Amino acid sequence: MINGRELMNSIVKNSLNGIVKTTQMFLSSSAKKTKEELDCVIRPMVREDEIVFEDLHRRARSRFLWLKDPQDWYVAHGQKMSTWYGSYVDNGPPIVYKPAPMLYGALQLQMPMDTDCFFPENTPPEWIGKKGTDAYISGVLVAPEHRNQLVGTKLVRYALAEAKKSGMERCFLIRHKDNWAAANLCHKVGFEVVVPPESDDEYLLGIHLK
């Protein structure tokens, strides 16, 4: 006959075994999802990328980023070429077909950004500098099949280096509080919370470049 103490010990032991087994399954599953770092080229967007960007936009299922100012974008790509596409050429036939690198990801960087209506009233003074010295990453797109391969991290680091070379002193971005992939990327690169969310679900993050 099992007494109360033996019964309790048995329950605790079974519970701990269950927790260990669940943790091992989770770690095993995470390991399977982890991919190797993707070797890619990061550079400013050129004209040939613009139509290929539409394919990336569709695959990434972005509802908020659009190609309004191509000069503000940077792209990540490899050696693989995309399918042929049509584009207009000045002083020539209306359409010419040529291949372009398939895009792994893209990032939009505004510099300098318009700071007149950007900062909330509770922004710490150390984050408010001279007008024209702040950059803003308005979005990052990464193709689903190339996520967890440091494509986003490389794009952000490249953008920060470009902002610093251009004389920017700070760079900002806004992250949704439930976007844990973005949270991990921002922490890895060095962004800090400038203003935590209050009425909405977004964090204002920033990083000092000098």
Rank of each mutant, 00 (worst) to 15 (best):
C117N: 14
Y203K: 06
I174P: 00
D39S: 14
S62I: 11
P101F: 01
R63E: 15
R63F: 10
A31Y: 11
M113I: 09
P120H: 07
E192N: 13
Q79D: 13
K32S: 11
C171R: 02
R147C: 06
Y136D: 06
R5Y: 09
G139M: 02
D116L: 06
L185E: 04
M81A: 01
A31K: 14
M81E: 13
S30Q: 14
G18A: 09
K177R: 13
F118C: 03
N122G: 00
H208S: 08
K21L: 12
E202W: 13
P44M: 04
H208F: 14
L107E: 09
L7F: 11
L103G: 08
P197L: 10
S62H: 10
Y85G: 10
K33V: 00
V195T: 15
G4H: 05
K165Q: 12
R147P: 01
K154D: 04
T153N: 08
N17R: 14
N9R: 13
Q71H: 10
H146V: 11
G206M: 01
P99K: 03
K164I: 01
S87W: 04
W73P: 10
I207R: 11
M1L: 10
L109V: 01
A135P: 03
E202T: 09
Q24D: 12
Y104C: 01
L27I: 12
T23E: 14
A181V: 10
K164E: 13
C186P: 00
D55M: 04
R147F: 01
F119Q: 04
I2W: 03
L27C: 13
E121L: 11
G4P: 00
L155P: 07
L173F: 10
L155F: 09
G78D: 10
K13M: 07
F53N: 09
L209C: 05
L103S: 10
